[in-house]
């Protein structure tokens, strides 16, 4: 009885230490596994579901030259750091979202006549469209919301400030473009 009383009197210390451990080692591991912006490609996806770890693994099998890390996150990942998606290189967005945020996206060359346009420029490549009967990377992106049989159109877009879209901006490297093209070929 005395031991139980003692334990509950000191329980907060144990709980506090567990919390400290999680925060401390989470921070340390993030620091260790992270790579500088120039050596990583970050993908943010706004699909109903996402196999982020599996997709990062798949894309990480053949990294573009100079790239050390590929990170894939759902937008919900940025709940505590709303500025984080602004640092991403590639976005997988619904057509509506892409058109709403066109000012932040890089113009890209046309790949498909269904690619979304905004103010006369193409802002992304179609990755999934029910009307067009086209879908890529189904095994990693869940385009359909639970219980739904119809989905929105999804497009692959590029952050206009990315340093990995040389083909479009003329500076940096082409790692993000390379990865986006591989995304469109994934089963």
């Amino acid at each position: 009885m005395r031991a139980i009383k003692w334990f509950f009197a000191n329980f907060h210390r144990y709980l506090l230490w567990l919390l400290c451990s999680v925060i401390l080692w989470g921070f340390v591991f993030t620091l260790i596994t992270d790579a500088p912006k120039a050596r990583k490609v970050v993908i943010y996806a706004d699909t109903p579901s996402l196999m982020d770890a599996e997709l990062a693994d798949e894309l990480g099998k053949d990294l573009p030259e100079g790239i050390r890390l590929i990170k894939v996150h759902p937008f919900s990942y940025a709940a505590f750091d709303t500025g984080a998606p602004a640092e991403a290189d590639i976005y997988v967005l619904s057509r509506e979202q892409a058109e709403m945020n066109a000012e932040f996206l890089s113009a890209v060359p046309v790949k498909d006549p269904h690619d979304p346009e905004c103010e006369g420029r193409v802002i992304g490549w179609l990755i999934h469209s029910d009307p067009a009967g086209y879908s890529a990377a189904d095994s990693f992106f869940g385009y359909y919301a639970q219980g739904e049989t119809v989905s929105l159109d999804y497009v692959v877009c590029f952050n206009k400030n990315s340093v990995h879209i040389r083909s479009f901006t003329g500076t940096g490297d082409d790692a993000a473009v390379e990865i986006a093209e591989r995304l469109l070929l994934l089963p």
Binding site: W17, C20, S21, L24, W25, G26, V28, T33, A53, A56
Partner: peptide
């Protein structure tokens, strides 16, 4: 540590740190 084993190792580190503490 790398991107593949990071999660498993992080869990191990947290467990060891918590038990040690």
């Amino acid at each position: 540590v790398d991107a593949h084993n990071a999660v498993r190792r992080l869990v191990c580190a947290i467990a060891v740190s918590a038990v040690g503490g």
